[in-house]
Amino acid sequence: MLVLFFVVFIDLVGFGIVIPLLPFFGEHFQASPDVVTLLLATYSITQLISAPVLGRLSDKYGRRPILLFSLLGSIITYVWLGFAETLMMLFIARAFNGFMAGNIATAFAYIADITTPENRAKGMGVIGAAFGLGFIAGPAIGGILAGPDAANPNFQLPALTAAALSAFAFILAIVKLKESLSEDARAKIANMPPRKHWQSFFETLMRPRLGLLIALSFLCTFVFAGMETTFAMWTRREFGWGPEQNGYLFAFLGIVSALIQGGLIGRLSKKFGEGKLVMVGSLLLGIGIGLIPFSDSVTLLLIATTILAIGFALSTPSLNSLISFEAGETERGGVMGASRSAATLARVLGPILAGILFAQLGRDIPYYAGFVIMLIVAAIALVKLSNQRAPKADKA
């Protein structure tokens, strides 16, 4: 698990480096706010396509080969991003980069392979902590490399640094990462009748409990992604911030997320159960995002974003853990791939809707809408999930 943690962490540092940069990159090519959010959504569109495909391929051929393939592709696409000279080149680079990012479903399946049901929330939290720590280092590094000037940031250096970090993760995975899927499991999968990837995706959604969990994961990610992709444009207009200041704030959110997902989520899930954590986390996410429009000082903004970061850090690994309990050994890659596809679809639609609301109705409207959605999620979780927790024994 430690090796996978470092591979995901390094990969997410590379991803995080470009987060505070992309809105300014898009506006550099004269893109409007709704086009900027579409640029960010493009990454998720292709990730949506690749996640179930890579998840199923990892069931058949093993987790390790898929992780290596996707890391190699990330290296190439970050270099491409750094040398983009037109808005169209930027869109294409982000599309290919998103396709390779479908490997996250494989990483979650890897964790499901090597953990017991009692420890699965903790294992999912470890991957969540790698995400959080990646967002600590990545945005801060990207912001520093791009510079504080919103009008003239350095676009090339952060992208090439991300490529170098992905190359390091690729080498580490080759040397240290072992295969997690047993030969017996792969043999069972090989003997199963072939199914189309998207047929499997829709079949997964039709399973009632699993479909509900994936729907809640979709809505949490939908709201968070809308905030994430409009936030730099909001702070630029409210405080005059550039990539560097946004990078530091995203790094702060990463610290909060890593502390919860890496240190507390396992103990909290054992004490309260994953269902209660989903309810509380979604409520906090809604409160935090609803406070952003009222943040007329940096102090208030830090309070609002801390609350939303805590909420997202509680709800996401808890939902992933509950989803994994619904999958048997031979279908975990596919189920986690379907789950990641739904979350990635949220990262497509969330930014698009937030961008439209931002451009057409005002910069505060996406956050008000997110607040309402998360209240609905919290209510559903209270009614449907409050008693759900890890099973005592693995029935897979």
Score class of each variant (00 low, 15 high):
Leu2Glu: 13
Leu4Ala: 09
Phe6Arg: 10
Val7Tyr: 02
Val13Met: 11
Gly16Arg: 03
Ile17Ser: 00
Ile19His: 05
Pro23Asp: 02
Ala31Met: 15
Asp34Thr: 14
Val35Phe: 13
Ile45Pro: 03
Ile45His: 00
Gln47Ala: 13
Ala51Tyr: 05
Gly55Ser: 11
Arg56Ala: 14
Lys60Ser: 10
Ile66Tyr: 02
Leu67Glu: 01
Ser70Asn: 14
Leu71His: 09
Leu72Trp: 10
Val79Phe: 15
Phe83Thr: 06
Met89Tyr: 10
Met89Ser: 12
Met89Trp: 13
Ala93Tyr: 03
Met100Asp: 07
Gly102Asp: 05
Ile104Ser: 14
Phe108Asp: 03
Ile111Asp: 08
Thr116Leu: 09
Glu118Phe: 12
Lys122His: 03
Lys122Gly: 02
Met124Asp: 09
Ile127Phe: 06
Phe131Gly: 05
Gly134Ile: 14
Gly147Asn: 05
Asp149Val: 12
Ala150Trp: 09
Asn152Cys: 01
Thr161Cys: 07
Thr161Ile: 11
Ala169Met: 08
Ile171Thr: 12
Ala173Val: 13
Ile174Gly: 03
Ile174Met: 15
Glu183His: 04
Arg186Val: 02
Lys188Ala: 07
His197Met: 13
Ser200Ala: 15
Thr204Met: 10
Thr204His: 09
Met206Phe: 13
Met206Gln: 13
Arg209Ile: 11
Leu213Cys: 08
Leu213Ile: 09
Leu213Gly: 01
Leu216Met: 07
Ser217Trp: 01
Phe222Gln: 06
Phe239Ile: 11
Trp241Asn: 05
Gly242Trp: 12
Phe252Leu: 14
Leu253Tyr: 03
Leu253Gly: 11
Ile255Gly: 10
Ile260Trp: 01
Gly266Asn: 05
Ser269Ile: 02
Lys270Leu: 15
Phe272Tyr: 15
Val278Tyr: 00
Met279Gln: 13
Leu284Ser: 06
Gly286His: 05
Gly286Arg: 06
Gly286Glu: 01
Gly288Glu: 00
Gly288Ser: 02
Gly290Pro: 11
Leu291Gln: 03
Leu291Thr: 01
Ser295Arg: 01
Leu300Glu: 06
Leu301His: 00
Thr306Ala: 08
Ile310Lys: 12
Ser318His: 01
Ser318Gln: 10
Leu319Asn: 03
Leu319Ile: 15
Leu322Asn: 00
Ile323Leu: 12
Ile323Phe: 08
Phe325Thr: 14
Phe325Ile: 12
Glu326Ile: 03
Gly328Met: 04
Glu329Tyr: 01
Met336Gly: 05
Gly337Arg: 09
Ser339Asp: 09
Ser339His: 13
Ala342Tyr: 10
Leu345Trp: 01
Ala346Cys: 07
Gly350Cys: 06
Pro351Thr: 01
Ile352Lys: 01
Ala354Thr: 00
Gly355Thr: 04
Ile356Ala: 09
Ile356Ser: 03
Leu357His: 07
Leu361Asn: 04
Gly370Trp: 04
Ile373Asp: 00
Ile373Val: 15
Leu385His: 04
Ser386Thr: 14
Ala396Pro: 00
